[in-house]
């Protein structure tokens, strides 16, 4: 009988961890290769949030009077946070497309680390978020937005933005595994709009009817936008409610809660694919 040299399944914890990271990185690199093959898509992905920023900045900038600052200073942090929330679509589309095309099944039939699909997705989407944020900050600076706080505070603000993106990542993975049909992306594309607009991204909740203002205040997007306005030293517009007093805390708590809920749910769902 001939013996073929097969790679051995990783045995020790250290080996397993090493393979989990290596496999995750292979999956991340797949996404990077997608971007390299479709530069047009990456540009479109970047243009959309930049366009929203410019549109609102120039359209409403003149009409909006923000107490203690100008509208651009108010708007840019809001759109940064909004873009992180819209990232849920990208995650969802990638996960559900793979499931529908049988690629998830192929991954699962390989001896790769079971976590790699999710870890790889996470790596790819977070890298994507950094690229998007960089492009938007450049566009924001170009239309006159500045931060006035310390560098540390600014870095903390970017940290909060990425934390929000991470929460949206887990939500996207869960939805992608549950709905498993690329058609559902249509529904999601429509649903993110009310979530995006029923927030303090574009206008202050104080200017809305009372009940709507409350809904808006409690939107996780509002928490992050409020917190980073504070950290960037940008005008927050009527910061009088309890939630906006503790904006930074809320901007940590909201994503933490979302991750605590959807991370275990996603892992469970992924495992249940084999039941």
């Amino acid at each position: 009988m001939t013996t073929t040299t097969l790679p051995q399944p990783p045995g020790t914890l250290g080996e397993r961890l090493r393979w989990a990271l290596a496999d995750g990185w292979t999956v991340t690199r797949r996404d990077l290769a997608h971007r390299a093959r479709q530069p047009g898509m990456t540009v479109t992905d970047l243009l959309f949030p930049v366009m929203i920023m410019l549109m609102f900045g120039f359209l409403f900038g003149g009409a909006m009077a923000v107490p203690g600052g100008d509208y651009t200073e108010f708007l840019v942090p809001g759109v940064l946070a909004l873009t992180m929330v819209f990232g849920v679509e990208a995650t969802f589309t990638a996960i559900s497309t793979d499931a529908a095309r049988g690629i998830t099944d192929r991954f699962r039939s390989l001896p790769m680390a079971p976590s790699a699909v999710v870890v790889g997705r996470c790596g790819a989407d977070m890298l994507g978020a950094v690229v998007t944020l960089t492009a938007m900050v450049v566009a924001g600076l170009a239309i006159g937005w500045r931060w006035h706080g310390s560098l540390a505070a600014a870095l903390a603000a970017f940290g909060l933005l990425l934390l929000l993106r991470l929460a949206m990542l887990w939500l996207g993975i869960y939805l992608g595994l549950v709905m498993r049909s690329p058609e559902a992306v249509m529904a999601l594309q429509i649903l993110v709009w009310p979530i995006g607009f029923l927030s303090n991204a574009f206008v202050a909740p104080g200017t809305m009817p009372g009940w709507l203002g409350t809904v808006t205040e409690w939107n996780p997007l509002s928490a992050t936008a409020g917190a980073i306005r504070e950290l960037f030293g940008n005008p927050a517009w009527a910061a009088d409610s309890w939630l906006s007093q503790y904006a930074v805390l809320a901007a940590v708590a909201w994503p933490a809660v979302l991750i605590a809920v959807f991370c275990p749910l996603s892992i469970r769902r992924y495992r249940r694919l084999s039941y």
Binding site: P7, R29, A33, H34, G102, I103, R106, A116
Partner: peptide, 24 residues
């Protein structure tokens, strides 16, 4: 499987290398 479970965006070679890496 019933559907060709390969990555549509990547090239054939990139697919094979990626899956080879995932076979360790």
């Amino acid at each position: 499987g019933q559907h060709a479970a390969v990555d549509e965006v990547l090239s054939g070679r990139q697919n094979l290398v990626m899956f080879g890496r995932l076979y360790h």
